[in-house]
Amino acid sequence: MADLYFEDVNEGDEGPSISHELTRTDLVMYAGASGDFNPMHTDEVKAKEAGLPSVFGHGMFSAGLLATAITNYVGIGTLKRYKVRFAKQTWPGETFITSVKVTGKRKEDGENLVDLECTLTNQDGEVKVAGEATAALPSRG
């Protein structure tokens, strides 16, 4: 993907969205990659014994998927800051939709900073992860 330059970004711009249906395989992969083996994320039998309808997703999986959407837009290695709040549990079968929007741009200490509002919702618009990020972009100048 071509580099995103500071001059080409405007408040209100949106990055490309990711749409992804959460599967149990995603959760098993994320458990193995992250080391979070809480059985509520990977063991359907134990999750049901605990009174849950099924396993539920790792919050950090959703945060990671949202980060993928962010770097797809601003480029890998440009992030200065990324913050997320976990609003709701996630469930296999839900389809996640990411949104990455430019809320402002500024120059600070010689860096070209772009502020982003990023959210991950399900197919019904329910917010699962609400976040914000700041990226330092290259300049054409």
Binding site: D26, Y30, G32, A33, F61, G64, L65, A67, N72, I76
Partner: peptide
Amino acid sequence: PVKVFAAAVKDGN
């Protein structure tokens, strides 16, 4: 581990 983690968060870069 970095490659596996990137795959787990659906980043195929």
